[in-house]
């Protein structure tokens, strides 16, 4: 038995919306770049969860394949992002996101 038969799809929509909003709130809330990255991962995961729920509901495997590709892109994004972060920390000795406004000037 699948959870989609006993749990309404709207509950999954609400859960994903709440997780996504927590991610957006975290991006605005924190100044540490690493935590901002982690909140972006949280947003990607909220989307993944909704996609798997609808894939299970509509009996279509394409949704689960999309989740694979999102995971692949997330892994590549984290590797490059953390490399950039380590570079910036080596030059400025700070992980403060408000410190990184040099492109504006």
């Amino acid at each position: 038995m699948s959870a989609i038969q006993v749990v309404p799809i709207s509950y999954y929509v609400w859960l994903s919306a709440i997780l996504f909003s927590i991610g957006v709130m975290g991006v605005l809330f924190r100044r540490n770049v690493i935590i901002v990255f982690m909140c972006i991962e949280l947003m990607l995961n909220a989307v993944n969860l909704l996609m798997v729920a609808f894939s299970s509901m509509l009996n279509d495997a394409a949704g689960q394949i999309f989740v694979f590709f999102i995971m692949a892109v997330a892994a590549a994004e984290v590797a490059v992002g953390l490399a950039i972060l380590v570079m910036i920390f080596r030059n400025t000795k700070s992980v403060d996101i408000d410190f990184l406004n040099k492109l504006k000037r």
Binding site: I4, P8, I9, S10, A17, F20, S21, M25, F29, N59
Partner: peptide
């Protein structure tokens, strides 16, 4: 801002709540 975004998303996706649960799951 996060709370407002959540309200907007739940309101926008409300029509999904009317979708019936599947009878048969593969």
């Amino acid at each position: 801002t996060g709370g407002l975004l959540m309200v907007v998303m739940i309101a926008a996706l409300r029509s999904a709540a009317e979708m019936p649960a599947p009878q048969k799951v593969d």
